[in-house]
């Protein structure tokens, strides 16, 4: 099923593009070029976050945390490892990307924790950043209910990810 879906993207999009009379190779290259710059651009963020998280892991912080929060997080089905992602996500997309890459590196690309982290990444946003930038351009000083609504959305996104992954990928646990 997922192999088919994968092929649908890889073959389907270029075929549809050709049908739409687009030079698919040129389009691919221009997008890929930008993708290359984006990926290289995340190196500083990745180093900053991975070093900080790596230090934190080595310090035994997560082990201590799982003793304290473990039983509570277990109840809602959230592994301790995805906690840093949930905490950093509202502030910085690049930093959250760094944490996600770290989680996948630690647990492997086929693990439950990685799937959950990737799902959380897709269903939440850098709320504070978006609000700062979007209100910034129109000089809004009173943001009223925008921040609480955005944070509620992020929180529900995380809870929904935990529930959805539990049912869809529970067999990986």
């Amino acid at each position: 099923m997922s192999t088919l879906l994968f092929l649908l993207f890889v073959v389907g999009i270029p075929l549809y593009g050709t049908y739409k009379k687009i030079n698919v190779f040129d389009a691919f290259i221009s997008g890929a070029k930008q993708g290359f710059e984006t990926t290289i651009g995340i190196v500083p963020h990745l180093v900053a976050m991975l070093v900080a998280i790596g230090m934190l892991r080595a310090s035994g912080f997560f082990d201590s945390m799982s003793h304290v929060l473990g039983p509570l997080l277990d109840k809602i089905g959230m592994p301790v490892d995805v906690l840093p992602l949930a905490l950093i996500r509202p502030f910085s997309g690049s930093a959250a990307n760094g944490v996600l890459v770290d989680i996948i590196h630690q647990h492997g690309g086929n693990s439950y924790v990685s799937y959950l982290a990737a799902t959380i990444m897709g269903s939440t946003e850098t709320t504070f950043y978006v609000i700062a930038v979007y209100f910034g351009v129109v000089n809004i000083r009173f943001t009223r209910h925008a921040i609480p609504a955005g944070l509620i959305a992020d929180f529900i996104g995380i809870v929904a990810s935990v529930v959805v992954c539990h049912y869809l990928f529970g067999y990986l646990k």
Partner: peptide, 12 residues
């Protein structure tokens, strides 16, 4: 690779 593919989708 993915971002290249997405650019085709965008152009479509």
């Amino acid at each position: 690779f993915w971002l290249g593919l997405m650019r085709i989708a965008e152009a479509c």
